[in-house]
Design a protein around this nucleic acid. Structure first.
Lengths: 226, 226
DNA sequence: AGTCTTATTTGATTTCGATCAATGAACGCG
DNA sequence: CGCGTTCATTGATCGAAATCAAATAAGACT
C-alpha cells in the first residue's frame, strides 16, 4: 500500500455510497469512518495473499481488484473481480482465520481498509453492520454460484454474450466501453485470453462489433439466443 | 414438505449443534427455536426453486440437499451440496429478494425451516445472529471460490483425489464410506458420472480402491501428487 | 515520431471431458 | 428369491477450449 491516509472529503463521499456503508445507520457509518484508512494502489500490488492471517477488510473505491487462487505450480484462477463500491468479499474473515484467496489491484486503485478486529467489535454491537455484511456476502455467494453454473453450462461465446447483455441494460442496439482490459475480462469469465478473442470474433456474426474496448451490440435478441 | 412440526427433543439437540445456532447466545437460540419448523423430505423433493420469492431459511438436520441452477433447456449444474448441520446458504436472502438457485433433497432428509422475515427481525435486534449468518456465508463463499478455482485448475482425477484427501484427515492409509451416491459426488465436483467413474479407475493405479461406497486409500502422499 | 513493452489476435495442435450407447452391478420390493 | 428399476461402469466419438507458437496491434514513455 503506497500511502496510507485518513479519508478526505472525496473518499468519504465515495465510501458513503459503497455497498457496505450505504445501508447503515449514521452511528455505524461514523464508527466505520473512524477506523477507515485509504490507500492508493499501483497495478499488480497485492492487498493480501491466500493463507495469510486475515487482519483487514477491504472495499474498492475506484479501480478494480482481482481475486484469485493459485495452484501448486503457480497457475492462477480468478474467482472474482471487484469494482468501485464493492466490498471485497474474500476479505470478510470475521472469525480470525486466514484469507482464502489472493487479491491484487488490476489497475491503479483507491482502496478503503478497515481493521477486522474492530469491524468485528462494531458488528458485535451494531446489528445493522452485521446485517450489511451478511447482505453483501449473500450477493457475492449468489454471484459465485452463477459463475460456477455458467462455467459448467455455457460455452465461451455464450458466457461472453451473457456478460455483454448484462452490461447493456437497454434492449436495443447499444455501444459501450469495456470497463477493463480484455485479459481481465477473460479471467473473470474463466477463459484464456485467446478463447475470449475467438469468442468475440465468433460473435461478430451475431451483431457484435469490438474495436479495442469499444463494443457495439447490434441485436441484443440475437445475442440472447446464442 | 411432508409433515411440518415443532421440533422435538431430538431435533432441538441437532439444531443446537448446527452451524447456525451453535455460536449463538441463549436468548438468540431461544428466539430461533421459537420460529423453527421441522420437515421431513423424501428424496427429490424441492425445498425452493430458483426465481421464487424467498420466504424461508433452511438448515439441514440430516440427509443431503443439493442446490443447483438450471439453464434454459433444462440442464442442471450443481453449485453446492449441504449436509447435516449446514445452513443452506442459497436460502439466506435477507433483503426480500428471490432465491438464486433450486434446492432439492438428495436423500430422505430432515430440514429445519425459519421464516425469513422473522429471522431478519431477530437479526436486526441481535447482532450475534447477524454475525452467525455472516460467518456461515463467509465460509460458503470461500468454498464456492475453492470450487470455482478447482474447476478451472484441476483435471477430473485431481479433483477427485483432492476430495478424497479432504475426507480422510489422517495422513496414512485409510478406508471410509462415501457419504452419498457417486452421481451426487459427480455433480458436486462438476463432473458427469462417467467422468467420475473414469477418474476412480485411473486412481486405482495410485493406491485408491473403490467398491461401492467403500473407498480405500493406500497412499495419501501419492494422491497428493496426482 | 520512434522505441519498447505489453496486449491481443490468429493459427495449429492436443487434451480433456461431455455425450451417446450399451452392458453390468446393486438395491428395493413384492 | 427373483424381478425390475435405478445406478455405475466401459467403450467410442465428438466438440470445446487450453496450450504452444508466432505475428500484429496498441500503449506508454522518451
Amino acid at each position: 500500500m503506497n500511502r496510507l491516509m485518513k479519508p478526505g472529503a472525496r473518499e468519504r463521499e465515495t465510501l458513503l455510497n459503497s455497498g457496505l456503508l450505504s445501508a447503515l445507520g449514521v452511528e455505524s457509518v461514523a464508527a466505520m469512518m473512524e477506523i477507515a484508512a485509504i490507500g492508493n494502489l499501483p497495478p499488480r500490488q497485492l492487498l493480501f495473499r491466500e493463507g495469510e492471517p486475515a487482519d483487514m477488510l477491504h472495499s474498492v473505491l475506484s479501480g478494480y481488484v482481482r481475486v484469485y487462487k493459485l495452484d501448486p505450480d503457480g497457475r492462477e484462477a480468478d474467482v472474482e473481480l471487484y469494482g468501485p463500491g464493492d466490498l471485497i468479499g474474500a476479505s470478510v474473515v470475521l472469525d480470525g482465520g486466514r484469507y482464502g484467496a489472493t487479491a491484487q489491484a488490476a489497475e491503479p486503485s483507491l482502496i478503503a481498509r478497515f481493521d477486522l478486529k474492530r469491524v468485528r467489535d462494531i458488528a458485535g454491537r451494531r446489528p445493522d453492520l452485521a446485517m450489511a455484511l451478511a447482505n453483501a456476502l449473500t450477493g457475492q455467494l449468489a454471484r459465485a454460484f452463477a459463475s460456477l453454473a455458467d462455467d459448467r453450462l455455457h460455452t465461451a461465446p455464450q458466457r461472453v454474450a451473457r456478460y455483454l447483455l448484462a452490461q447493456c441494460p437497454v434492449d436495443k442496439a447499444t455501444s459501450f466501453r469495456l470497463p477493463y482490459q480484455k485479459s481481465l475480462l477473460a479471467g473473470k469469465l474463466g477463459l484464456a485470453p485467446e478463447a475470449l478473442s475467438r469468442a468475440f470474433s465468433m460473435l461478430r456474426g451475431h451483431g457484435v462489433n469490438v474495436r479495442g474496448r469499444l463494443v457495439h451490440i447490434g441485436d441484443p435478441d440475437a445475442l440472447r439466443r446464442i
